Amino acid sequence: MSQLDARLAELGLEVPATSKPVAAYLPAVTSGNLVYTSGQLPMVDGALPATGKVGASVSPEDAQRFARQCVLNSLAAARTAIGSLDRITRVVKVVGFVASDPSFTGQPAVINGASELLQEIFGEAGQHARSAVGVAVLPLDAPVEIEFVFEFA
């Protein structure tokens, strides 16, 4: 068991298999010592746990939980690209998109679900630059989509 897998197990989490792309793209690519993930939806066993807009049919608390699932899915994509999650040395950037009801303004709190989990997993190396953006709609009517940039050795 890798060091990161042991940390995830300690947190009661498991990295799933890499989700199959829903269009014409790769789940992750590397350039130099960075791995860029495609936008990760909160897929669980190949399906979205919920659809709709945050602040309307999806609660902010559920959306925050879905943001955590996006982290696990991003780690699966990164593992596919670089072979081992133990190679990740830093979380560089997180860009979160939240399908939002027009009156909803809590996008940063939703994406905190991902940011806080990354810090739980990676400690100080999990601190990162970030954007949290509200959008009208996401693929498959997902409530949350997040892309990640990891540094690796």
Rank of each mutant, 00 (worst) to 15 (best):
M1L: 14
Q3G: 05
L4H: 02
G12D: 13
P16F: 04
A17P: 13
V22I: 09
A24F: 06
A28D: 12
G32T: 01
Q40M: 07
Q40H: 13
A47Y: 15
L48K: 15
L48V: 10
L48T: 09
G52T: 02
G52R: 10
G55S: 08
V58E: 11
S59G: 04
S59Q: 03
S59E: 11
S59F: 02
A63Y: 00
A63R: 04
A67T: 14
V71G: 05
A77F: 06
A78V: 13
G83F: 03
G83C: 02
I88P: 02
I88F: 04
V91E: 02
F97I: 05
V98F: 08
D101V: 03
F104V: 07
A109R: 10
I111G: 11
N112L: 01
N112H: 08
N112S: 07
G113P: 10
G113Q: 09
L117D: 10
L117Y: 00
F122D: 02
F122V: 00
E124W: 01
E124H: 12
A129R: 14
A129N: 12
S131T: 07
A132H: 14
V133N: 07
P139D: 08
P139I: 02
D141L: 15
A142P: 01
A142R: 03
V144L: 14
E145K: 09
F148G: 13
